[in-house]
Design a protein around this nucleic acid. Sequence first.
DNA 1: CTGAGATAGTTAATATATTAAGTAAAAGAC
DNA 2: GTCTTTTACTTAATATATTAACTATCTCAG
Lengths: 165, 165
Amino acid sequence: MQAQVQLTLMSTSFPDEASRRLLRDLAHSLPMALLRTREAVVQRFREVLSRYGLTEQQWRILRALDGREGLEISLLAEECRILLPSMTGILKRMEARGLILRQASVADGRKVRVALTEEAKALVAQIKPEVVQVYVEIERILGRNKLEQLYALLEELEQGLASSA
Amino acid sequence: MQAQVQLTLMSTSFPDEASRRLLRDLAHSLPMALLRTREAVVQRFREVLSRYGLTEQQWRILRALDGREGLEISLLAEECRILLPSMTGILKRMEARGLILRQASVADGRKVRVALTEEAKALVAQIKPEVVQVYVEIERILGRNKLEQLYALLEELEQGLASSA
DNA sequence: CTGAGATAGTTAATATATTAAGTAAAAGAC
DNA sequence: GTCTTTTACTTAATATATTAACTATCTCAG
């Protein structure tokens, strides 16, 4: 079965319908499509964030912590989809800049909670409206319905891949 | 107008309908949704590619060069959505491993064309069927219609953002 | 020609991503 | 209560992303 697929793929002369469609899908390339669109979207946000000396990842962390008391690093990492080794460095830089505070847990010596400083909260409040404007533009481009549709499809695929893992 | 939005966003007590929807969209976070889905998709491909000691980026380059005589580095970079400074390092590693060849252009001393070695072509032929199987699974999860729908929405948003840049 | 720009790539510096190891504290097994 | 395993992070090593600066051509106006 696997060998069959390989064979038809390697002989490009007379591919049957099935492998022709697979090849077209391959040309589509879902990772590339997701990358290109994400790149285009993120660029808009980056234009805003870079004026404040923030990276996209730092903004994700600011957004996740905003309006909360604090969060364990692991939970924060999970929510922001940033791996722990990356978090270590990012939080170090954010702490050095005075955007976050760390406090070790008394109950569990391994856990560390991080929270926004007042300065960071003010920064988030200042940036948020500009970020909202980017969303407004995106919705203007795609329309509210299609945007919701896109969210739904992305979610469905993510969940499907996760559950069949 | 901008100040208006900011004001409603900062008073979380009684947000009106518009800002409430904007905040929900913000919680959605399109970059995060694209990231999460892409992460889930790419992980499947990475399981295959890592067995061959390839990164996702290197695979994009292999795929782009496969079946062609060669390509200028700039064009390759554009097609693979990899920035030139990154390309320099990636191509260096791929050349060291014997996957690509470089040849300076005679017509234009600045340009460099890269092409796959025979070894690389054989590697691509070997890996391709496994990659196709990942696509088969993705299509099984989402269904062909929804998958095409997803591609279309991603494309439309990307184009929209590009043209309104 | 010739000098001002534009192009193709690389180098440099900093920030993240990814995988593997390592460390310290906590939870469980016995 | 020790011993093993798990958990929460950090460190290390390598690969890539991003922005800026630099080099060697090339192009083209004058």
